[in-house]
Design a binder for these strands. Structure first.
Length: 449
RNA sequence: GCCGAUUUAGCUUAGCUGGUGGAGCGUGGGACUGUUAAUCCCAAGGUCGUGGGUUCGAGCCCCACAAUCGGCGCCA
């Protein structure tokens, strides 16, 4: 049963002249009454297979003719170098086995027309139609989606590699929680044996509890936000890469944020050059993101630039996406924004002792209109200050009791960040929408399929 | 929460001042010896999102509802 020959290897010339058995799915099929051309697909690529009636016989020829798109088949034959075939190689078939036939009453519903979706301005929005979102389970096997899933896999691998190489310990937090990290309005409520629990928005508070034990820790886990956001940057369930570090300043934490993002870009170039090219992503752009240091800018500076451009923004306003977009449109690299006003950020951000109007935090803004991909900073670490900030905000203490308690026993300066993995993959792949890079996207009005 | 748009065959769509809904892809049948999401011929497939209204007559006009998409706020 084990599959030993991969279409990608055949196209790379590893099996020229050999007789091989190819297992895969029919991508396209065409032909005459004497020969069939079947484009076979597997997870590594496509190849044209030729079935000649006088070679394979009447019965096999009929079987091949009747096999509809997405039928699974095993084709045995000889690998020929042939420039008439896309990819330069071709399988001349001598035996056909249909494994999973497709019923003509229910043919594979996704065709070329279904894939060509455009938004209101006429820009391509791959996978954006209601039909393709309803048929996501079948859309996954189309080439663009397969490519995105491979890029995603490499990004996840790169994050693990980066943190492990930097001696971080992978650490898991619960997904059922009692309290919020951000403002309380964005939590999903879950019935919990007569009580109400919530789906976690972030690993952070539980990571801070483990910080005195592990000192350097990270995770990649789903986070949940009950935001009715209808944008190409939001999911209600997204994959969050977070790190927490003892004895660290805002600058040191930012250095790791830059490090992991550049490592992801570098890894995609090394592992997925073919895939990036296949979706027309400019490799020089990715190389630039991998090779250059990311500039830093203080919040005040950003506000000045925006005011200089005539944008209506006052000191103390948080910078929303419309402002980020104007700010980043001239950027050709991701930029860190630091030192936001205290009034714009929640209680756990540490106040800057040099000027108490500010907190020691940072956001990393991606260029090309992709927006914020990292948010992080130093944490408020003394018990007394935590209590004061909670009370100031009117946030109840009770759900955070464990968190407050950690400060009573040897609090130290520390901090961390959260990175939106889907957002990073979306940006680096040049996706038109974040849902392009996650297999089953969860948005405010879709939980199926 | 706010703003905008869409809904016609399995899919993508055309549809005139309101007067018996056309096509391409796919599917079925047929033709064809090298095709490149082949080509040629034929066929089946539609209570035009739901409900109401106006009208002699509604896919088209009006109202309500629903679903979906796009954008904003919020954030990763």
């Amino acid at each position: 049963m084990t599959k030993t020959v991969w279409i990608g290897d055949v196209q790379d010339g590893l099996h020229d002249g050999q007789t091989v058995e190819l297992k895969g799915w029919i991508k396209r099929t065409r032909g005459s009454n004497k020969m069939r051309f079947v484009v076979l697909r597997d997870s590594t690529g496509d190849i044209q297979c030729v079935g000649k009636k006088d070679v394979i016989g009447e019965e096999s020829f009929e079987a091949l003719k009747e096999a509809l798109i997405e039928s699974s088949v095993i084709l045995t034959g000889t690998v020929n170098v042939d420039e008439r075939s896309e990819g330069g190689h071709e399988l001349v078939v001598n035996a056909v086995e249909i494994v999973g036939a497709v019923d003509p009453e229910r043919p594979f519903p996704i065709n070329k027309e279904a894939l060509d979706v455009v938004d209101e301005e006429g820009n391509p929005m791959p996978g954006g139609s209601e039909f393709l979102l309803e048929h996501r389970h079948l859309y996954l096997r189309t080439s663009r989606m397969t490519t995105m899933l491979k890029l995603r896999s490499s990004a996840f691998g790169a994050i693990h590699n980066y943190f492990r190489n930097e001696d971080f310990i992978e650490y898991q937090a619960p997904n059922f929680v009692a309290g919020a990290v951000e403002g309380g309005s964005t939590l999903f409520e879950v019935p919990y044996f007569g009580r109400t629990a919530y789906l976690t928005q972030s690993w952070q508070l539980y990571a801070e509890a483990a910080m005195p034990a592990l000192e350097r820790l990270y995770t990649i886990a789903p986070s949940f936000r009950a935001e009715k956001s209808r944008t190409r940057r939001h999911l209600t369930e997204f994959w969050h890469a977070e790190m927490e570090m003892a004895w660290a300043s805002n600058d040191e934490i930012m250095a790791h944020g830059e490090g992991v993002v550049r490592h992801i870009a570098r890894t995609l170039l090394e592992e997925r050059e073919t895939e990036l090219s296949s979706i027309n992503r400019d490799l020089d752009l990715i190389a630039r993101y991998a090779d250059n240091p990311y500039p830093h800018m203080r919040y005040d500076e950003a506000v000045e630039i925006l005011q200089g451009k005539g944008v209506e923004v006052e000191w103390g306003d948080d910078l929303d996406y419309s402002k980020e977009k104007i700010l980043t449109q001239d950027f050709d690299l991701p930029h860190f924004l630091t030192h936001y006003p205290k009034i714009a950020k929640p209680f756990y951000h540490r106040v800057d002792t040099e000027d108490e109007k500010y907190v020691l935090c940072h956001d990393l803004l991606a260029p090309e209109g992709y927006g914020e991909i990292i948010g992080g900073g130093e944490r408020t670490w003394s018990e007394e200050e935590i209590l004061r900030r909670l009370d100031e905000e009117g946030t109840p203490r009770e759900p955070y009791q464990f968190y407050i308690d950690t400060r009573a026993y040897g609090g130290v300066p520390h901090g961390g960040f959260g990175l939106g993995v889907d957002r990073v993959v979306s940006w680096l792949s040049g996706a038109s929408h974040i849902r392009e890079v996650i297999p089953f996207p969860r948005t405010s009005n879709r939980v199926t399929p």
